[in-house]
Write a protein that binds this DNA or RNA. Structure first.
Lengths: 139, 139
DNA sequence: CTCAGAATGATAACGATTCTCATACGCAAG
DNA sequence: CTTGCGTATGAGAATCGTTATCATTCTGAG
């Protein structure tokens, strides 16, 4: 313990900042490859390995949320809320909203406890077609 | 739509039966590689590609459930219940139980609808340490 | 028994992620 | 301003799970 004035350690390098910025300005779940390509194209070339490194760090520090897309890819998103929450994600365009569900937390807790499980975590993700995509005739 | 007398098509080949049997006798989520190794060792050699093929088919037909493990691997399980349900999985030993949660279904539905989403699906998985593993001092 | 179509499986191909390691950089001390 | 050192970087190799290929084998109908 020798960190008196460092409540959170945001990236100090150009590359780290670029990764976080890309996520911040997007609001949707993005893959590492996706971000890498964007930074490439945007004139701020960052190595793929570095992108992965920063995403991992940011996730560990709770700055961004991660989830596994249906195809196995890991996708990342910068969230407004620091609290525990879930997402509803459009399976067409990738947009997502943060949602909370206290009753779900409670349900998960008690169901698990009833079965003798401890040290409980859970994942809850909702997928659907957002208003725009359903209107566009999303099949 | 031309399936008059085929309510469910269970595997008719030795290999298909072996894959399903392996899953049936296990009760936990297993990876494809895992099952492949078991069948190998059990004297019923089945090609890896064939294992994947059957797992995919069984999943499509709703005979088995799938989920993405934390490391990105897809894992499969044969479930008792045909109804929609969720799982609580021991992150130590892999055991799992089926659980239902009507209130969660309702919550997901209404939260999504409120935001204008349609064609809704969801994933809910709970992870923890099962009674046995917690007792064994699961760290 | 014969034949056509489906299933199989060894292997190559793939795509995402992680690892390796030589180099570039940032920064504090001198 | 220069030196020195520890950390970050990134190109490319290495992994690993999964899927595609395609020649061979099997199955079931007739």
């Amino acid at each position: 313990m020798a960190e008196p004035a460092s409540p959170r350690r945001l990236p100090t390098t150009r590359q780290g900042a670029a990764v976080l910025a890309a996520l911040r300005s997007s609001g949707t779940f993005r893959s590492a490859q996706d971000i890498h390509a964007e930074l490439r194209a945007g004139g701020a070339p960052v190595g793929l390995a570095t992108v992965y490194r920063h995403l991992q760090l940011l996730a560990e520090h709770g700055v961004i949320d991660t989830l596994q897309a249906a195809d196995g890819q890991t996708v990342y998103r910068h969230c407004r809320s620091d609290d525990h929450h879930h997402h509803i994600v459009c399976r067409r365009c990738g947009t997502s909203e943060e949602i909370e569900g206290p009753e779900v937390e409670r349900w998960a807790e008690s169901a698990a406890r009833r079965l003798g499980y401890t040290d409980i975590t859970h994942t809850v993700e909702i997928f659907g077609l957002c208003a725009t995509c359903s209107a566009a005739g999303g099949h």
